[in-house]
Amino acid sequence: MHGPDPHQPFPLAGYDRLCFLKNVIQSPQIEVGEYTYYDDFETVANFEKHVRYRFEFTGDTLRIGKFCMIASGVEFIMNGANHLSEAVSAYPFAVFGHGWEHAMAGKNYPTKGDTVIGHDVWIGYRALILPGVTIGNGSIVAAGAVVTRDVPPYSLVGGNPARLIRPRFAPELIALLQALQWWHWPAERITRHVQELTDPPSETALQALLQKYGHAPEDTP
């Protein structure tokens, strides 16, 4: 056996409140990598409900990488929540029509682009992720954090607004992990090295894996 079936919506037998998220998402504005799981206290159908202000006209996407861990109550705010904060009024007149429908002629609501969650990212209970944020590979977002800006790879962040608590590892180890990109390995290779993946990283071990397998292709969630 080489790990759980990534195409199985509910990988834990008899338990339907944890899912491999890719297999239950329906919105074309949400992209999820294999093995990323979502755990919900009620129903996994809540995930899409927690991707707020998701409107097709904004054209933005929530992109989540592989092997991520997303706790119950995590919320993502998309660009549909934005208003004209630098105009005389932030009120969305055009939405209501009746003579106001042309209020946005020649203008656009502000957008911060896609929200991107890297690979192997753990997002804790009731964290809130704002539009256009990128959370780097291997990062941990503490429960209740409000993430308003990009998070560097392998960082631990928390608070409101979320701030860097500490890097998870030394810079040289982070560089090796970023080069290794184990999340792109085939399942068979992950199975062979699963104990090493649950050990604290060492420069010697990571260098040996890189020498054996080389660098992964360009990293895209």
Rank of each mutant, 00 (worst) to 15 (best):
Q8E: 15
Q8A: 12
P9D: 02
F10H: 12
F10D: 04
P11R: 02
P11C: 04
L12S: 06
L12I: 13
A13C: 09
A13W: 05
A13E: 15
A13Q: 14
G14A: 03
G14E: 00
Y15H: 10
R17F: 00
R17M: 02
R17D: 01
C19A: 09
F20V: 00
L21T: 07
K22S: 09
K22G: 12
K22N: 09
N23V: 00
V24A: 07
V24S: 11
I25N: 09
I25A: 06
Q26K: 15
Q26D: 12
S27T: 06
P28Q: 09
E31W: 13
E31A: 15
E31R: 15
E34M: 10
E34F: 13
E34D: 15
E34S: 14
Y35D: 08
T36Q: 03
T36H: 03
Y37H: 02
Y37I: 00
Y37F: 03
Y38F: 11
Y38T: 03
D39E: 14
D39S: 13
D40C: 07
F41K: 13
E42F: 12
E42V: 12
T43W: 07
T43G: 11
V44Y: 06
V44E: 05
V44T: 15
V44L: 09
N46Y: 11
F47I: 08
K49T: 11
K49I: 06
H50F: 12
H50R: 15
H50T: 06
V51G: 06
V51A: 07
R52A: 08
R52M: 11
R52K: 14
Y53G: 02
R54T: 03
E56P: 11
F57D: 14
F57I: 05
G59H: 02
D60W: 02
D60E: 08
D60A: 04
R63D: 02
R63M: 04
G65S: 08
G65L: 03
F67W: 08
C68F: 08
M69W: 11
M69A: 14
M69G: 15
I70Y: 06
I70F: 10
I70R: 12
A71K: 12
S72E: 11
G73A: 08
V74R: 07
E75A: 07
E75H: 10
E75I: 05
F76D: 02
I77H: 04
I77N: 01
M78F: 00
M78G: 01
A81F: 00
A81K: 05
N82E: 10
N82D: 03
H83Y: 04
H83L: 03
L84S: 13
L84H: 15
S85N: 14
S85G: 10
E86W: 14
S89T: 15
S89K: 09
A90G: 11
A90S: 15
A90R: 13
Y91D: 06
P92D: 00
P92Y: 01
P92A: 03
F93S: 06
F93H: 13
A94L: 02
F96A: 10
H98N: 12
G99L: 02
E101M: 05
H102C: 03
H102L: 03
A103K: 08
A103N: 12
M104N: 14
M104W: 07
M104G: 06
A105P: 09
A105Y: 08
K107F: 01
K107A: 08
K107V: 05
K107L: 14
N108G: 08
N108R: 13
N108Q: 13
P110C: 01
P110A: 02
T111M: 04
T111A: 05
T111N: 07
G113L: 00
G113W: 00
G113D: 00
